[in-house]
């Protein structure tokens, strides 16, 4: 009996899908701690962005709500029905003035836009 008479075969079998599972197990046991970290970073970034989004949304809602509440005549808390806009109370509203309010003011008062801007920013319009 000579070795050349034998057909070179590999009779050793493996379970179905074995090598994919083996590779997965090896990676889990080795660089698995590194690979998911990269994934975790991505997830964490997305998560952070989502929270930034939530925070921005809350800030917008708060700003709009504060704007509505602080507009003279809509101060429900104080029950102030005044529609008057005076220099004396601008500082109270400086942070809550919105575009619509400015437009309303411009329509109500016979001043041009630039003069009104100067008034709001305390600059000389001369």
């Amino acid at each position: 009996m000579r070795l050349e008479d034998y057909k070179k075969k590999d009779p050793f079998a493996t379970p179905e899908g074995y090598f994919a599972k083996l590779n997965s197990n090896i990676l889990k046991a080795t660089c698995g701690n590194s690979l998911p970290q990269e994934k975790r970073k991505k997830v964490s970034l997305v998560s952070r962005m989502r929270w930034v989004g939530y925070a921005a949304m809350i800030a917008i809602i708060a700003t709009v709500a504060a704007g509505i509440i602080s507009v003279p005549g809509t101060d429900w808390k104080k029950g102030n029905a005044s529609n008057e806009f005076t220099a004396g109370n601008t500082s109270e509203y400086d942070n809550s003035i919105d575009g619509e309010y400015i437009d309303n003011m411009l329509e109500s008062y016979p001043i041009d836009e630039y003069t009104f801007y100067c008034y709001l920013t305390d600059t000389d319009n001369n």
Partner: peptide, 10 residues
């Protein structure tokens, strides 16, 4: 490194 090692395993 991790990605390279993954390729080696495969």
């Amino acid at each position: 490194r991790a990605a390279a090692f993954s390729a080696i395993v495969e």
